[in-house]
């Protein structure tokens, strides 16, 4: 549910991204994508296509694993047995989604061991929102509703992309996630229509989570790198701002329906353009957090490292003698 990998192209100009590629193969590749066909692992693909997909799918996989941590925190203290069961099921789904995504990424030639190493070393990124804490039960409700909602907007777009294994993984993920969103909404509605203390709790959680939610889709199109080629190759399916608009359009009315206050006095639908006006999110804060200085970066990686270390003996104990790794087929 957590897919919102950011595209980075190392500041390269668009036309240098495939300067050294075979022009005939490149033309065939682009024609296949333009015709709406999927690219499969055994197909020829430009180096930059492979590189960006590895980065994007790997980030998405790590986000599922790390994203399970702030929510998992609340399993032991979930109010009531039904919510505890639902939250356990949701967290299990997220970890399962990471497995699907790691496999999709492996088909591009990066092994699972390398990906885990890069996460633990802090070399690979994951979604910025998980560097914030889930302070109360209401935070876990807001995450399950609105962060999942944002991720679904992103994932539905990406499931129409060009790389077969990623699309297939995303279709399965989106199908499983429909319950996450409903479960999150149910929790938020329960609190928002409850006692004054419950209402206050959910309002405070929304206030805390609004800036990370606005950051979720990545930097504004005005300042983000050039992605024309990646859009032509159907690696990136919609611009950051377009996805943010789609999310606001779908969820701001639902939030206002509950009489909750979104902490942005400038947020309103512009009748002339049909788009939402809002205060520009602070992209300096976003950069700081993504580069390791958020409230929970150190904790998230430390917990993941501990889990990896403590589980190691189990994996070693059942290590197979056969050393013949082959990347998954599809």
């Amino acid at each position: 549910m957590y897919g919102n990998a950011y595209i980075e192209n190392d500041g390269k100009q668009t036309n240098s991204m495939f300067a050294d590629e075979d022009p005939i193969k490149l033309a065939e590749f682009e024609a296949r994508i333009a015709a709406g066909e999927k690219i499969e692992p055994q197909d020829w693909m430009p180096k930059e296509y492979r590189k960006q997909l590895i980065r994007m799918i790997e980030q998405h996989a790590h986000s599922e694993i790390i994203g399970a941590l702030p929510e998992g925190t609340w399993i032991t203290r979930a109010p009531g047995f039904r919510r505890k069961l639902a939250l356990m099921a949701k967290v299990q789904d997220e970890v399962g989604h990471a497995q699907l995504l790691y496999s999709a990424c492996e088909t591009l030639g990066k092994s699972r061991e390398q990906m885990v190493n890069d996460l633990i070393d802090g070399k690979s990124k994951y979604s910025n929102v998980f560097n914030y804490p889930a302070v109360t039960w209401a935070d876990s409700a807001v995450i399950a509703w609105l962060i999942d909602a944002g991720a679904i907007v992103n994932q539905i777009a990406n499931s129409k992309g060009s790389y077969g294994p990623y699309c297939r993984a995303l279709e399965r993920i989106c199908a499983e996630e429909s319950f996450h969103l409903k479960y999150g909404h149910d929790n938020v509605v329960f609190l928002a229509t409850g006692t004054p203390i419950q209402r206050q709790m959910v309002q405070e959680a929304l206030t805390r989570w609004w800036p990370p939610i606005m950051h979720f889709f990545g930097p504004s199109d005005k300042i983000s790198v050039h992605t024309e080629t990646l859009m032509k190759w159907k690696v990136k399916m919609a611009s950051n701002d377009d996805m943010r608009q789609q999310f606001l359009n779908m969820y701001v009315p639902k939030i206002w329906d509950l009489g909750l206050v979104i902490p942005d006095p400038n947020l309103k639908k512009n009748e002339a353009t049909g788009k939402w006006d809002y205060t520009e999110p602070d992209w300096e804060v976003f950069k700081q957090v993504i580069n390791g200085n958020g409230p929970c970066n150190a904790e998230r990686l430390a917990v993941r490292r501990m889990a990896e270390e403590k589980g190691r003996w189990v994996r070693r104990a059942i290590l197979s003698k056969e050393k013949k790794y082959v990347a998954p087929l599809a």
Partner: peptide, 26 residues
């Protein structure tokens, strides 16, 4: 639970070796 585990934030662990995650099955 994280506090009870007393995790050292600066601890380093060795890298996974290739094949630590075994082989793949379809």
């Amino acid at each position: 639970r994280v506090n009870r585990a007393e995790i050292d934030g600066e601890a380093k662990i060795g890298h996974l070796d290739e094949f630590d995650y075994w082989q793949t099955y379809e």
